[in-house]
Amino acid sequence: MHPAPSLILFTTLSGLGFGLLAFLCLGLPDARGLTAVLWFGAGFALAGGGLLASTAHLGNPQRAWRAFTQWQTSWLSREAWLSVMALAAAGGVALGRVFFDLPMTGLGPVATGLALATVASTAMIYAQLKTVPRWNHWTTPALFLSMALAGGALLAGQMTVAPVLLLLAGAVQLLAWRTGDGRFAARGHGLASATRLEGGRVRSFAPPHTGSNYLLREMVHQVGRRHARKLRSLALIFGFLAPALLCLTAHPLALVLAVLSHAGGAMAGRWLFFAEAEHVVGLYYGYHEAGAR
């Protein structure tokens, strides 16, 4: 799949933002007044900024309000509702903590639940697609949720749980890669099932068009696979291992470095999430078949 910058920014930033809000709304840290302005401001900027970035990949963003209508069937619509509800609930918690010195223990857990549900619904947009076997698995929501929790704990300065959550997210990421690599072939997708042609070896002889098209640009992304293994190592080191180690030093500067390292590693991982995902439509063009291009 095409690794659109808007989608990589959206999923990583809003994941971090909702993860941070999830901790803040539970009173971790117990910020009040001006300190709460800074903490919640960062959470809203990341979550809201990510949501805004997501509208950049729409063909007609002026109609984005219509995405609220189909919550009964569409995960994208559910994500729209959950994100607005999570931001509203977290806004309520922020108001109480900033202006009234209230811990907001009633609304707080609700806001935390909504923030994590938003991240899960984002993941389900990808996990629901049978056409992309790599994503169509429980590891996708597990990855998005564990990343949001790890990034949120790090941003919220929870130095005791952050290393544990970071290593857990790293393990989920490793599991997602290990189980995802063979899923396309394991599900039996191939040119034989795509065309139902039989009687011999079938191969794509000529594509329908001499140039490129939307399908190839959007769903048959090939660039960078050569470097996938190196990028995976970098994503693991910078996204999870380095920040987990930096947390243990408990130095304020180390925390800043840990956040930057985690954000960079998470973006590399999210780039791979898209770039490595094989869509079955590629089969019709002669890609993804065992032993093919």
Binding site: M1, H57, L58, G59, N60, P61, R63, A64, R66, A67, L76, I125, Q128, L129, K130, T131, V132, N213, Y214, L215, E218, M219, H279, V280, V281, Y284
Partner: peptide
């Protein structure tokens, strides 16, 4: 009513849907 998000084209196994680059639908 189409916002041009492209998710339907991702969901189609057959490559039957194409986003029009001019109209964004």
């Amino acid at each position: 009513a189409c916002i041009g998000c492209g998710l339907c084209a991702w969901a189609c196994p057959y490559g039957a849907r194409e986003m029009d680059a001019d109209a964004g639908v």
